[in-house]
Simulated assay, not measured.
Amino acid sequence: MRHVAIEALLPGSDPLTVFERLKDFERYPAHTDAVREVTVRTEPDGTLLSEWSVNFRNGELRWSERDTVDTENLALRFEQVDGDFERFDGAWTVLGTGDDTTVRFAADFDLGMPSLERIIDPIAERTLRENISAILVGLLGDTLVFVTAMDADDLQTTGG
């Protein structure tokens, strides 16, 4: 099982505005070539079901997830219900800090390939970090400051 966490600060921003941008999953492909397509439908209880297609190495990963929008706490929780991962779940959280906004992404994943996990999982983790970083820069702009440690290669490939 792998864990990925990214935290970024957006100076002079409104947390609710940032949250509204984050929850618009269908716009993600416009902000990074890594995300091919996202379709979202709303269930009668308000839960969102989203279907994702993303580039991974020379192929594609596909999954569907149940997304819970908690506007009161500015949190988006997701849990894979079907797809290429054995497990993929986590959350986006948005916090107001004075005049700034902090965005956190945290997820746990398992590709379910025990014999290849030492090779594939680190690549998947790096790709996920790069993709999330690119989405954040695309959605929120280049004034975004990454708080979590990222190496120069990560920032270079995400445009940050």
Rank of each mutant, 00 (worst) to 15 (best):
S50Y: 02
S50A: 15
E51T: 15
W52L: 06
S53K: 14
V54I: 15
N55T: 12
N55A: 12
F56V: 10
F56S: 02
F56H: 09
R57L: 13
R57Q: 13
R57F: 01
N58I: 02
N58A: 13
N58V: 03
E60N: 10
L61W: 00
S64R: 15
S64P: 01
T68A: 11
V69N: 08
D70N: 15
T71Q: 13
T71N: 06
T71I: 12
E72H: 11
E72A: 15
N73D: 14
L74F: 07
L74T: 07
L74E: 02
A75H: 05
A75N: 07
R77L: 11
E79H: 12
Q80N: 09
Q80V: 08
V81L: 12
V81D: 01
D82A: 15
D84Q: 06
D84R: 01
D84M: 02
F85K: 06
F85C: 02
E86R: 13
R87N: 10
F88P: 00
D89E: 15
G90L: 07
A91P: 00
W92H: 09
G96I: 03
G96C: 06
T97C: 08
G98Q: 07
G98T: 07
T101D: 04
V103P: 01
V103M: 07
V103D: 00
V103R: 07
F105M: 06
D108K: 09
D108L: 10
F109N: 01
D110F: 09
D110V: 07
G112S: 11
G112C: 09
G112Q: 09
G112E: 08
M113V: 15
